[in-house]
């Protein structure tokens, strides 16, 4: 099957593989501990672990965009910040 029209590159392929692995991991987690672990965190509304992953990924996208727009094109520090942000989201939200 010719997928050249999708213009794949290694960096974008790795990005999507990571997203797919995250979803797969969340599926395994849900299988091991069903129910989604709902709780009310600092945002004062109930979130499941799926919600927390969504908030982490969406927030990370905006962190990267803000870093790119305000600081510069070197996004490695932004990626580190995203990891810290994701840990905080999974811990406190």
């Amino acid at each position: 099957m010719d997928l050249s029209w999708m213009a794949w590159t290694w960096p974008t392929a790795i990005f999507f593989v990571v997203i797919a692995l995250l979803l797969f991991g969340m599926g395994l987690w849900e299988f091991a501990r069903p129910g989604g672990a709902p709780r009310v965190g600092i945002l004062r509304f109930e979130t499941t672990r799926g919600d927390r992953l969504f908030i982490s990924l969406l927030g990370s996208a905006f962190i990267n965009l803000a870093w790119l727009g305000l600081i510069g094109p070197n996004l490695w520090w932004a990626l580190a910040l995203c990891l810290v942000y994701a840990v905080l989201v999974f811990r406190y939200v």
Partner: peptide, 11 residues
């Protein structure tokens, strides 16, 4: 996915 791929390239 295709749009993401395009957004990092020129054609």
């Amino acid at each position: 996915m295709t749009v993401v791929n395009y957004s990092f390239q020129d054609t």
